[in-house]
Each structure stands twice: as C-alpha cells, then as structure tokens.
Design a protein around this nucleic acid. Sequence first.
DNA 1: CTATATTAGTTGCAAATGAAACTAAAAATC
DNA 2: GATTTTTAGTTTCATTTGCAACTAATATAG
Lengths: 187, 187
Amino acid sequence: MFQQALIYLQMQLSGYSRYTMPKPQVTDPEIMSDPTANDARLCLPSFFPYQLAVFSDDVSKAIAQLYRGRYKLSRQEWRVLAALGERDGLSAKEIAEYSTLDKTQTSRAAARLLHNGLIIRDEDDSDRRHLRHKLTGKGRAVYREIVPLVRARESYILSTLSEQETKELARLMTKVHQKALELQQWG
Amino acid sequence: MFQQALIYLQMQLSGYSRYTMPKPQVTDPEIMSDPTANDARLCLPSFFPYQLAVFSDDVSKAIAQLYRGRYKLSRQEWRVLAALGERDGLSAKEIAEYSTLDKTQTSRAAARLLHNGLIIRDEDDSDRRHLRHKLTGKGRAVYREIVPLVRARESYILSTLSEQETKELARLMTKVHQKALELQQWG
DNA sequence: CTATATTAGTTGCAAATGAAACTAAAAATC
DNA sequence: GATTTTTAGTTTCATTTGCAACTAATATAG
C-alpha cells in the first residue's frame, strides 16, 4: 500500500504522466532509465500513436455515453444527425464527406434514422440520384436536446485547460494531423 | 506532491484504481454548463471530440499501414506483439491490461499469433489458469523489424513539432484525458 | 473437507463492419 | 441518338466485434 504511494511519488518526479508512466510490473527498469538507448524495444505507453488512440477512445466514450444511453444512437447515427442538424437537406454523399463516414456507414445510419422517424428524405428533382436528407420534428428535437449535453461534456473535458492552452492543443493537433495525412497518402 | 501521494493512498484504500478514482471536487458537467452559452447548433468540425477522433484515426491508419500491409497483423495482434516484445512471459490478462485490449480481443489475437507461429504459450506451473505468452524466434524477428518502422513514422509525424511543443502536446493531452475519464466514470 | 465464489481464458451468437458487387440516374463520348 | 463512363446510393457476403455464457483452476467460507 505504502509502496504504491511511493511509486506514485516517483512517477510524479520522473516527469511521466499517470498515463504515460510504464507500469512497474511490466517494465524493464534498464529501458526506462534511458528511453533513447534501446532501439530494439518499443515502450507502448510512451508511443505517441498508442497514447493518442487510448486518449481519443476515452473521449469518444465519454461523449458516446450520452447519445447511446439516452437516445440509442450509434456513433454513425449521431454524426449523421449532427451533420443534418447543422445543415439540412444534404445528400448522403455530402453527409459522408462532412462527417467523415464512408458511404456504406452513411447509408445504413440514415436508414436507421429514417426507420426511427428522426429524418425523412426525398429525391432531388434536378438529379434523381441524390436524396435530400432532412430532420423531422422529432429528429430536430433530439438534436436540440443532445447538443447542449455534448457541448457541456466538451466544455467540461476542456475546462482543465486555459483558453490559451486549448488553442495551443488545437494548433499542435492540427500540425501533427497534417504530417499523419502525408504518411497515409504515401502508403 | 505529497498531497497527491496521500490522495493516492486514499484511492487505494477506497478500492478505486488510479483510473477509476473519481475526483470529489468536480461538479456534474451538466450543471456546469451555461444555458445561455448553448447555441442551438453544433459545428462538427470544431467540436473537440470529433476533431480528436478524426485525428487519432488518421494517425492510427498511418501506423497500421505498416503492420497490416507488410506483416498482415491486426491492430490487436500488433498490440499483443508489442506487449510481449517489451516484456516476455505475460499472461493474457496482463497483456490485456498493458495494451488496453479486452480479454476477448486478447484471446483471439493471441490465438492468431499462436497459429501463425509468432508466439508460444504454456501453463504457469504455480497457477494453471495462467498462460505465459512468449515470442518465438519468428515473433521476435517480426517485432524487431516493425519497431524501427513504427518509430520512424512516429518521429516523422512528430517532426513538425519542436522538442518543447511535443512535450506540451503530451502534457495537454494528459490533462484532458484525465477529465474525460472522470466523465466516463459517472456514466 | 465441502460448498461457494472468484479468476483466467475461450467460445457462441447476434450485430456491426468493410470491400466489392450491384442498381439506377446522369454525363460524357462517339 | 446510342454507347460508355461516372456518380449516388444500396445490398451482399465474409469477417470482425462485443457481450454474455461457458469451462477449468484456484481461493475462500462454512
């Protein structure tokens, strides 16, 4: 018990966060003593893409609890709803682009929302391949209920940062994001 | 500093893990929200959890290209490999905890790695419920090939930031992550 | 010692996923 | 104007996922 408190103190002193701190029982001390010295091993908790994935996943979960729990919406359904709440009358393709979903996900999410009466859609007269998606009264009501809730959670999550830190986080994320996209493009 | 150690002690006594410990001083996020600030619409591209999800997804894809493309490993298999590469002889449960996978994912990923000859495992003599997982020569060879590749991608992605910016990003992420975990805890 | 509970890990099953095939409409080519 | 190509959106199918039920081993309670 007391030993764990001491480990925690060491953690604080070592400059690791509680999330990037390697767990004592699975971490070889000689590796941690000089992270740059051993190229043969990767320390998962200090590997940026891993940290980011875990972080993002936890933020997503915190938000998803809202729309999943109270409104029985999937992540995709929520995104479609969010897209249409912001701009009514989009086609499926536009929804997909706007909400970073692929067309299959969009199609299925829209089908479920339609089935549950949250949206309607009809053909665009000028191009009958396009379906113009619109929120129903019910859909808009749900949207209007959810928005303040997710907003509040976003605010809460970011409340630990100052105005300036929040901007800085966004700036750094954007820069890193660009580099990741470059890599993705080149395979 | 010492105060945090004391909090940690209380945490241990109360049966909470370091991740599930609720912070008593914070208030309910929905109460915290300012009703007057609630615009009727949500702008998805400027909604932090959405930005983060897209960002993380793109970084994951940039890394996954490596182990998926060249080594035909799933994300889960890669994580198990990474855990064992770092510390051999873990049980499935330890792998799961270390790599943030659930036990089903771990079990299935390990089964595939076993089938492909990247790991072996045998019962722990002192507790025959535990399986000690170890990399085979082949598994370690794959691990040793992948590590420099993913390291290089991580470096490239972060090369757009200065040393100091990288630290700052990690610091901000950690702070925000903690808040997100608090929310998850409440449900 | 027996009965019950807990823990490690696997498996069965229903639902979700993603890639590719498919339908239908419009555009482009000849 | 007929033919081919492209675009929007859906469906099919094989794979993956997540949850809960399950087996087996150990720990605990009576």
